[in-house]
Design a protein around this nucleic acid. Structure first.
Length: 610
DNA sequence: GATTAGGCTTGG
């Protein structure tokens, strides 16, 4: 009889036909996976959830003492072929588990990509028929599944997210028993200041020259617990995908260095883990291509040269050296390119002031105690019942139960003779405490603290806010305001759709409102000299409204981070970034003195470097 | 030869 080589004919079971206690062959598209990690037993473990055109899911728990014998899955959407997988019922659901003779092939799930199997065994069958199956599954997945993994480049990271990072390992170091440091890069620059984990120089593994050269492009990833063992075994220079990295924003505002931290927390939730990518991987090829064309010297220089602030206008102007500006008469306007050597105030919340655009005066933002004191003082005057329930507001009054027997009145302003929804309502309060006023601002659109006179309600002391909206207290200028009777408000209440804009409320009440501004002094330097320049900004420069910064922690952190980008702490002048600014000079004269001042205009913080 | 894990984020 002539020798015949017959490839075994495999039968593949759709995921909706799986039965407890069987051993089957199957195809599936990866919907979720945990890259192989060291289990608590003797093997590596990988958990893989598949789906197929029957729309049934199957979670498989795969074990093997040999890393290479587990499926080489790199991303959600990959397609796998499993041979001889055991099906068991667990918690009322079918579950796949490795058994004797388990073998797998993995394919890229992209429609049109070459169909190249990644095998977990040396010998396998793969023919035209299988090729066709893969292509059909790709097409089905493309139109029936939404697979967009959380990938990101370092240039695109934001604080507080989880994402998968494809990168190259540049350095590694032990930190302590439960954590390990990986220094990685992906060729792009993280726009935020990043955390540098302190380690002993002798513990840091990696090419010294490369580590130094890439010092501003690498980020420190701290991996914990179960990931430490695998991290230790990684080879410098290898390409990695770190799954579900967490970008954490350093929380302490008063810390002088706020930054982004990269953590790979312990455990394997959400597929947290580290995978080594082979050189043949498409994403790796992409990265290597990018690294190759990257002329590192000039690239690093360019990163250094790109300004961290940019002009919003006057692009056509040429730069002027600081020395020239210092030797010129005012007023004039200039475009400059300089470095921020230092700035004041260093405590950023101190940069917030109140500004009157009518009399040009500046003042400190009063603190809560001042307001509390004024409220206490006004609570002495009892609400006048004759002023309650008018044509344009409804009133309620009660007396507190404590021994103070304080009388509180709230007047709800009506619209069209009707009360509005709380979130649209303006109310006036008499006799409330600071805490009570704050509580009301949470529920109602506007709160105006008032007190009774004989014939109308009136605003409190001019140093108290005339209006509270959301988190913001609005103040009026003492010099410029001439308060009008409260009943002037009824004209807004009668409008078709009262918007309760603070400026409009101020106007009818005869108040000239103060505006929240950032005032800072920048000391800018270039090769020719140094110049003190004022920043006076409502929100254009930082892209943060000055009015919100005092009551918003995360905005304060954002501002601190921005300042750290413009003027990174602890750097030499050479390593400071460039700022591109538009400034104008102006004269300030009085009887005795004449001085030239400089102010930043039409300049904003750049979106991100690179 | 059994065990491992059996998806579902944030502490350091």
């Amino acid at each position: 009889m002539p020798f015949q080589s017959v490839a075994p004919k495999y039968v593949y079971t759709p995921l909706n036909h799986l039965k407890d206690g069987t051993v089957v062959n199957l195809y599936g598209i990866v919907k979720f996976f945990k890259p192989p990690y060291v289990s608590k037993g003797t093997d590596y473990c990988s958990v893989v959830t598949l789906v197929d055109p029957s729309n049934v899911k199957l979670t498989c728990t795969l074990f093997n003492g040999n890393l290479d014998s587990l499926p080489k899955i790199y991303k959600v959407g990959d397609i796998v072929r499993f041979h001889r997988i055991k099906i068991k019922e667990y918690n009322g659901q079918m579950q796949g588990i490795t058994g004797v003779g388990f073998a797998s092939l993995t394919f890229d799930g992209t429609v049109g990509a070459p169909v190249v199997p990644r095998s977990s065994s040396k010998v396998y069958t793969f023919m035209d028929e299988e090729q066709k199956t893969i292509e059909e599954l790709r097409v089905w997945a493309a139109s029936n599944l939404s697979i967009s993994g959380p990938a990101a480049k370092l240039s695109g990271v934001r604080p507080m997210l989880f994402f998968d990072l494809t990168c190259q390992l540049v350095g590694k170091a032990k930190v302590d028993g439960s954590s390990f440091l990986l220094k990685v890069w992906d060729g792009t620059k993280c726009p935020y200041p990043t955390w540098k984990v302190p380690v002993e120089a002798r513990d840091l593994e990696g090419e010294k020259v490369v580590l130094h050269q890439l010092r501003n492009l690498t980020v420190d990833v701290l991996v914990y617990d179960n990931h430490v063992q695998l991290a230790k075994s990684l080879k410098i220079g290898s390409f990695l995908r770190i799954y579900s990295i967490h970008t954490k924003q350093a929380s302490a505002v008063d810390e002088d260095v706020s930054h982004i931290e990269f953590h790979l927390h312990g455990g394997t939730c959400y597929g947290r883990g580290i995978g080594v990518l082979p050189e043949s991987n498409l994403d790796v090829k992409e990265l290597k291509k990018f690294f190759l064309i990257l002329d590192l010297e000039s690239y690093l220089q360019r990163c250094q040269q790109l300004p961290v602030t940019v002009l919003t206008d006057h692009q056509d102007l040429n730069n002027t050296e600081l020395k020239t500006i210092l030797n010129s008469t005012a007023p004039q306007q200039y475009r400059i390119r300089a470095k921020l050597r230092t700035y004041k105030p260093q405590k950023l919340y101190q940069s917030i002031k109140l500004y009157c655009s009518k009399c040009n005066s500046l003042q400190e933002v009063p603190d809560g105690d001042d307001f509390d004191f004024i409220l206490q003082g006004s609570a002495v005057t009892a609400p006048n019942p004759e002023l309650h329930n008018t044509s344009w507001y409804d009133s309620v009054m009660w007396t507190t139960q404590d021994q103070k027997q304080r009388k509180i009145a709230i007047h709800f302003v009506k619209h069209d003779e009707m009360l509005q929804q709380p979130e649209d309502t303006l109310l006036m309060i008499e006799g409330g405490t600071l805490k009570e006023v704050w509580k009301l601002t949470k529920r109602f659109k506007c709160v105006i603290p008032v007190r009774s006179t004989e014939d109308d309600l009136e605003l409190l002391d001019p140093s108290a806010p005339f209006l509270l909206q959301g988190n913001i207290k609005y103040y009026g200028c003492k010099q410029c305001s001439t308060p009008k009777p409260i009943k002037s408000l009824s004209s807004i209440a009668a409008e078709q759709r009262p918007s309760w804009e603070p400026t409009e409320i101020a106007q009818v009440l005869g108040i000239v409102p103060l505006q929240y501004v950032f005032i800072m002094k920048f000391t800018l330097v270039d090769a020719t000299g140094a110049l003190n320049v004022y920043l006076f900004d409502y929100e254009n420069f930082f892209q943060i409204p000055a009015s919100e910064i005092l009551t918003n922690n995360s905005l304060q952190q954002k501002m601190q981070m921005t300042m750290n980008m413009l003027c990174p702490p602890g750097r030499k002048l050479d390593d400071l970034p460039w700022l591109e600014c538009f400034i104008k000079s102006y004269n300030v004269r009085d009887a005795m003195t004449h001085q030239v001042y400089y102010q930043i205009f039409d300049t904003t913080v750049a979106e991100g470097v690179v």
